[in-house]
Design a binder for these strands. Structure first.
Lengths: 191, 191
DNA sequence: GTCTATATAATGATAGAC
DNA sequence: GTCTATCATTATATAGAC
């Protein structure tokens, strides 16, 4: 089998399992079963479990970049772009109810483990924050664009956490509506 | 040594370690070292690791009840009582920056592990929600007391998550101010 | 009630055949 | 590049002496 293909499969499976079960709870055995590769061959592609984590985070960073770039090109205004961000709560609703936010839960776990890759994972949050902050600054809110971006990130995180704990479908929709309503006043000062 | 005393010491140590490192990452060895009791004797008090978790959650439920009852008796108005809740973010700021919210992170971990005790841990959230909901209903917001309580819970969770990831002292203060400001309009409709 | 010694299973990781 | 066999370590958990 092609080297890079197997490597990609491993990263894929690890990404899913880390999200669904957490990093520490996921074992090499579980990943190798899913990829249908023996545990031994595994170490040809990754020398340590941390190396897989590094690759998974790198992958998520790239995916986030791609998604933000898409929103940037597709959204016709900063307001619409920010609404794209808010709506991922709806798009990924089922997974969020089951496993929480992939960014937030990975970061929380790595912070508790005081894991060397925690700074690496934090970068995913920083990506979202920089992008959101940029959108808000375009809404003539330069003075508090950072704060508004952090505020929106925090609310999304809280919604994802409670949604996974209470497992309530309507709750996410209700809070997403509330987020859209919160955003509206900021959009009026644009033109 | 007294039976119940050792038992209490074990629950205490486990409570701290589960908070600081997570449930799964914490081993019997670590707990026994902290309590200064041999691993063997450990099983005299708790038969399985899950039994310790059950005891820890039970302990947290009791502590939460006590705290909410105190706020109930000390706060002179529903508004002041809700502000007591908001201010735990300030009171526990250092720990939250290091380890996140003890309620949220435990629940998130148990959800990912699909652990049998997850329903048990969820009850801690339910306690806070019921109490907050009660306060809001006293502010003549019966129609949306539940929603306001969930909203406040979610924002607290999001703040705790981001505070632990970004490790920024001023951020918590800033968002707490924002929470107090958010609450104010609801308090005017009281008398 | 506390200890030491031990059983058992799973983990991350390595060596070497093919 | 993939495999089987194996190692060292750690984990939860048990048995039995004191």
């Amino acid at each position: 089998m092609n080297k890079n293909l197997t490597r990609e499969k491993i990263i894929n499976a690890a990404d899913d399992l880390f999200y669904q079960q957490g990093f520490e709870h996921t074992s090499f055995s579980q990943i190798s079963v899913q990829v249908k590769v023996s545990r031994g061959n595994f170490y040809y592609h990754f020398k340590t479990k941390n190396d897989i984590l590094t690759a998974v985070i790198e992958r998520r960073l790239k995916n986030t970049s791609t998604m933000l770039a898409q929103w940037q090109s597709q959204g016709q205004s900063p307001t619409e772009r920010i609404r794209s961000f808010i709506n991922i709560l709806i798009l990924n609703r089922e997974k969020i109810q089951k496993f929480g936010c992939p960014v937030g839960t990975l970061n929380s776990e790595l912070v508790k483990l005081n894991h060397p890759s925690k700074e690496n994972a934090k970068e995913i949050f920083t990506q979202f924050h920089a992008w959101l902050s940029h959108q808000f600054s375009q809404l003539k809110h330069n003075h508090d664009a950072d704060i508004l971006a952090m505020h929106l990130l925090a609310r999304s995180q809280g919604i994802a956490t409670l949604a996974s704990v209470f497992n309530d479908k309507n709750y996410i929709k209700q809070e997403v509506d509330s987020l859209h309503a919160w955003l509206t006043p900021y959009t009026n000062s644009l033109y």
